[in-house]
Design a protein around this nucleic acid. Structure first.
Length: 265
DNA sequence: CGTGGCTCCTGGCGGC
DNA sequence: TGCCGCCAGGAGCCAC
């Protein structure tokens, strides 16, 4: 349930399973997931082509094709998207929405229980990002730019980190994690964060996302001092054992340690 | 510009 | 055991 680390793992998964193989069949069962393209277009573009390269921007997975009209298949995973590469048709995962069959008989499934995702095609990634109005990718962003954004935003820091139009890649869970590790209260106004804290926030943001990628984006593989495995109703702070608080910020469930991340007056 | 509410979907879980 | 309401790692839209 994909934020940046999960999507990065999906990218690696495509790299290790699905590149340079001719696509012989495409089946799309849920056209409502399509962006500004039709089912016929998608099938026509993919069929007889190969995936040649991959990239990632924020929470979007970009799969490069060798097609003269559409060079990129773009997958967004919503809250419940996943990928699976498998051989036998009978092993097709439940909730497969897009199924791609390769010449070698293997299949790649885009799975999505809830239909909150998107399948798209684009000739040009820069145009796509512009059309979606996405902010800079959080693993690419320079401190200079990060600083300019944070110091000019009047909304809460959690909202600022999570809003894909401001910066792209962070979702609810990692926003909480990054603020926890930096000891910032999630409701702090972004522009009220002091210089030193802001630098620390930037470093932690990158560090945490990279660590999550190294762990395969599996929550279980992350160190115990991460907040992630303690996100629960009776969870306790892994650093000071204080009972975690659960509140809503920007409508999203938020956990934080009231002792280490106190609200500033 | 920011916030809160509603909507799209569907499965899983806690409560009665 | 069964049903119900609520929640969820996303995000667009709209009113204020």
């Amino acid at each position: 349930m994909p934020e940046l680390p999960e999507v990065e793992i999906f990218k690696q998964y495509i790299d290790s399973t699905s590149l340079h193989k001719k696509i012989v069949n495409v089946d799309l069962t849920t056209p409502s997931l399509l962006g500004k393209i039709t089912k016929e277009q998608l099938i026509e573009v993919l069929k007889n082509q190969k995936f040649e390269k991959t990239d990632r921007y924020g929470k979007h997975l970009l799969v490069g094709l060798d097609h003269e009209l559409y060079l990129w298949l773009i997958l967004h995973f919503g809250m419940s998207g996943n990928l699976e590469y498998f051989k036998e048709s009978s092993d097709k995962p439940k909730y497969t929405k897009l199924l791609i069959e390769f010449e070698n008989g293997y299949h790649l499934a885009y799975i999505n229980i809830r239909k909150l995702g998107e399948i798209n095609l684009s000739k040009n990634i820069t145009d796509f990002i512009k059309a979606k109005d996405l902010g800079p990718d959080v693993l690419q962003i320079s401190y200079q730019k990060f600083r300019a954004i944070i110091s000019s935003r009047r909304g809460t820091i959690k909202y600022t980190l999570m809003n894909q139009h401001i910066m792209a890649g962070i979702g609810n869970v990692y926003a909480d994690e990054i603020l926890f590790q930096t000891a910032i209260n999630p409701e702090t106004k972004a522009n009220e964060i002091a210089e030193k804290k802001r630098e620390e926030l930037y470093d932690n943001m990158k560090k945490i996302l990279k660590k999550a990628i190294e762990a395969g984006a599996e929550f279980g593989g992350l160190p115990d001092w991460f907040l992630i495995s303690h996100r629960a109703n009776n969870g306790r702070c892994p650093k000071c054992n204080t009972k975690l608080k659960q509140i809503k910020v920007s409508g999203r469930t938020t956990y934080y340690c009231p002792n280490r991340q106190p609200k500033k007056k």
